[in-house]
Design a protein around this nucleic acid. Structure first.
Lengths: 228, 228
DNA sequence: GCCGGATGTCACGAATTTGCAACATTTCCT
DNA sequence: AGGAAATGTTGCAAATTCGTGACATCCGGC
């Protein structure tokens, strides 16, 4: 269970502490000390989860949460609110803005990890429900069908899962190791170069409908599916 | 009693809570957080039951219920309304739009399961009443008769139930385990490959009328009945 | 008891999928 | 330009999956 997690916190010491713990837990932290920086990072990296401090200088955490919920691309990203206050009133208000969970400072790393795990697990099944479509490339998990501009596209099982993952995590670079984790499974042992081969097979299958251009190579890093 | 149940609820926490409980009860939940998403899922997956939140952003739950009742294909799907309000006035209005039952939040998982069971049991006989037809392949549960382009087709009991399930859940891939659950029964123990054999027998019976092409194999996943 | 249909299981072959390695090409750095 | 690293491409053999026919069993009717 490895994930990219955006931490928004204005207190540098706390920010570093959280990031350190996230790394220990096997996650990849992204750090922001303001809502503005957070917004830039979110649109670039599309994290799997956002840890959001309630009180921020300038734009508040609540306002940031609202904006994340307003944008279609970021709407589905889970949010965990951090706050020093423990008033029931604030909790309700926080949940009302769309936070998925709520942690009051001070909190233990153990508690933080537990909440993160729970939220990620809760979110996982939702991804498999709805059909995904980007730039005319459509994948329907229920019917197990892929179409490009309406024309049917045939994929092998692995290429199907690979495309499914890319479509549900677009606009973001995935390393070969991450793709192996998410598409093949956390435990299996296969060469990283095998990812290249399946990317190739996926591209070849998408080529007749000119959908292969959506899959981009980021040299030295991995692959990305992008609408552009 | 295993069923595919669509949950329409805009509050993510509640949505996942319900989905979790449905899975525990042996059902397969489909999640939607808006009426629009719900409509897409309904036409794709044709669930056995819809759990519908009263209040939804955009198109309301009441309006969604009306649309489901307006379409011939979805008319017979039972609907259970969820609401935070408990006013008698709303209850009446909700039932008037065609909801089969009504639960006021907060509710216990036990209560939810009981209502679901009751509604499915009530609806069970009705599901077998309607004749199903797709691309000229027609199955009449009452007369226990199957025709392809008007010509009679003879099926054994198991093939009949299998075709019935496929016809009532078309355009959607079913794993062998799911087919065993729905056609054979939740508890029986038979090999998964047995499904293959009965698919084969069903195909052979449909072959003279060229209806075997409707049953498609999705390698590594299962089988699907499709009009295309 | 005998028979015929229905059903579950198995075995074998065909078709597909998959991981890997080898080779070809591109990219980046000096 | 030269070379190293990264990526694209192809062929192949092993593994997996599926189709198909054969077979054994069960069960109700005669």
């Amino acid at each position: 269970m490895s994930a990219t997690i955006l931490v928004v916190e204005d207190e540098p010491a706390i920010l570093e502490l959280i990031a350190y713990n996230l790394r220990l837990a096997g996650h990849q932290p992204l750090c922001a000390d303001s809502a503005e920086q957070a917004l830039r990072l979110v649109s670039n990296a599309l994290p799997d989860l956002v840890l959001l401090d309630w009180m921020l200088p300038g734009t508040s955490g609540i306002e940031l949460a609202r904006r994340l919920r307003a944008d279609k691309r970021t709407r589905s990203i889970p949010i965990i609110m951090l706050t020093a206050r423990s008033e029931e009133q604030d909790k309700l208000l926080g949940l009302d803005t769309g936070a998925d969970d709520y942690i009051t400072k001070p909190f233990s790393p153990r508690e933080l990890n537990a909440r993160i795990k729970a939220v990620l697990r809760r979110r996982a099944p939702q991804m498999t429900d709805d059909a995904v479509e980007i730039s005319g490339l459509r994948l329907d998990p229920v019917g197990h069908r892929v179409t490009g501009n309406g024309e049917s596209i045939n994929l092998g099982p692995t290429e199907f899962r690979l495309l499914h993952f890319l479509l549900t995590h677009p606009e973001r670079v995935h390393s070969r190791a991450q793709l192996l984790d998410h598409v093949w499974g956390d435990h299996v042992f296969v060469e990283e170069r095998t990812v290249d081969v399946h990317i190739r097979r996926l591209r070849k299958a998408l080529e007749p409908e000119r959908m292969d251009r959506l899959i981009q190579t980021v040299r030295g890093t991995g692959y990305r599916l992008s609408a552009a």
